[in-house]
């Protein structure tokens, strides 16, 4: 009986391995046979079209912020759905050990966190404001801002940091950022100039990047806060 069970399991495993491997072999064959001798045409197209935009010199931002803004919009939607799920479940789950846990007292961490946090925050804003000119972007800015808040939570505690940042207000800002991105996408499809998808004016570009940065910052902070709360303290 046991041997039979083992046999069926191995048969199922062999079937799965065979099926997935077949797909892998087909993918490799498609890559080898379907090679385009011209190569990289789409990328060159985006580089060339990026030249026609006046305000954008970072071609990666040109792709995700202007030409393929819908991609970014739906990415933001999926991300905010994940954050929404986490927020709802963290409200449902009673957090018993939220405030009772002890912070580890360390003067070095306290002093360096309060000294370093403004620098990290300013760097995040700089990346959000200058992403159309150089390396950076809203996503990187948001993650850097979230890391800065994590640094602050290391020294002050997650609950205190959440109160200081007025978490409930921040959740509204998150959805405002999403609505703003939606508005830009709608306006960009209504008035397509040189760029289809998003708008390419300088103010819009900076505002889009800041909105993406705020969105990712608040989402990252909400996820971090949930796991910190669940565990007790950092």
């Amino acid at each position: 009986m046991i041997a039979m069970k083992k046999l069926t399991f191995s048969l199922k495993g062999a079937f799965v391995v065979g099926l997935v491997s077949t797909f892998g072999v087909l993918a490799v064959a498609a890559i080898i046979l379907g090679k385009d001798p011209e190569g990289l045409r789409i990328g060159q197209l985006y580089l060339k079209r990026g030249l026609e935009l006046d305000n954008v010199s970072n071609a990666v931002f040109g792709v995700y912020g202007v030409f393929r803004f819908y991609d970014t919009l739906f990415e933001l939607m999926i991300f905010s759905m994940a954050v929404l799920g986490i927020t709802v479940f963290s409200d449902l789950e009673a957090s018993e050990s939220s405030e009772s846990a002890q912070l580890v007292e360390s003067h070095v961490v306290n002093a360096s966190a309060s000294f370093l946090y403004p620098i990290v925050a300013v760097f995040g804003f700089y990346l959000a404001f200058s992403a159309h000119l150089g390396p950076g972007g809203g996503f990187a800015a948001g993650v850097i801002g979230g890391s800065g808040v994590l640094l602050l939570a290391l020294s002050k505690g997650a609950g205190e940091t959440g109160r200081r940042f007025q978490e409930n207000e921040m959740k509204r800002v998150e959805y405002l950022a999403l609505i703003f991105a939606l508005g830009v996408a709608v306006l960009g499809s209504l008035y397509p100039g040189k760029a289809y998808g998003g708008l390419s004016g300088l103010g819009t570009i900076i505002a889009v990047n800041t909105a993406i940065g705020m969105k990712v910052f608040i989402g990252t902070w909400a996820i971090l806060h949930f796991f910190v709360k669940h565990r007790g303290e950092i």
Binding site: L40, G43, Y46, L47, G50, G62, V63
Partner: peptide, 8 residues
């Protein structure tokens, strides 16, 4: 230049 599309 590198292709910007896969980076995005």
């Amino acid at each position: 230049y590198a292709d910007p599309l896969p980076q995005a």
